[in-house]
């Protein structure tokens, strides 16, 4: 049973990835649709970022946590530097300083 389920889960996941690549012909996309698709990273990633930052392990909304402060730190450094590596370093370093020294 578990094997069949995993294989179906794999097919579902693969189809989520492949189906629109297979079905959409670029010449059928109008300019507005192409423009909207340009916002996909900005529309998807915050939906995975915000809950991970603002909900604690007990699934309650919290603003006064090390995670929130480290996130703000990474956000500021990221905004100024526009640099991927600097953003990650500033977020993790500030987080570790807080959890190990405060």
């Amino acid at each position: 049973m578990i094997w069949i389920l995993i294989i179906i889960a794999g097919i579902i996941t693969f189809m989520m990835r492949y189906s629109l690549i297979a079905l959409i012909k670029p010449e059928n996309l109008n300019d507005t649709t192409k423009k909207v698709l340009g916002y996909v990273p900005s529309a998807v990633f915050p939906a995975m970022i915000f809950p991970a930052v603002f909900f604690n392990k007990a699934q309650t909304l919290q603003f006064n946590t090390f995670e929130v402060y480290a996130f703000i730190c990474a956000l500021i450094i990221g905004y100024i530097s526009k640099n991927t590596i600097l953003t990650i370093i500033s977020g993790l370093a500030s987080y570790w300083i807080m959890i190990f020294f405060l």
Binding site: Y39, P41, S42, A43, F45, L75, T87
Partner: peptide
């Protein structure tokens, strides 16, 4: 996880249209 995902968006943070889209997405997810 959220920090590496944030790092993928930093180049768009100064674009007001992208910033609005990000905030709408983030607040909706909460």
């Amino acid at each position: 996880i959220p920090i590496t995902f944030l790092s993928l968006l930093v180049k768009e943070l100064k674009k007001i249209d992208h910033l609005i889209v990000m905030i709408v997405s983030g607040v909706s997810s909460i």
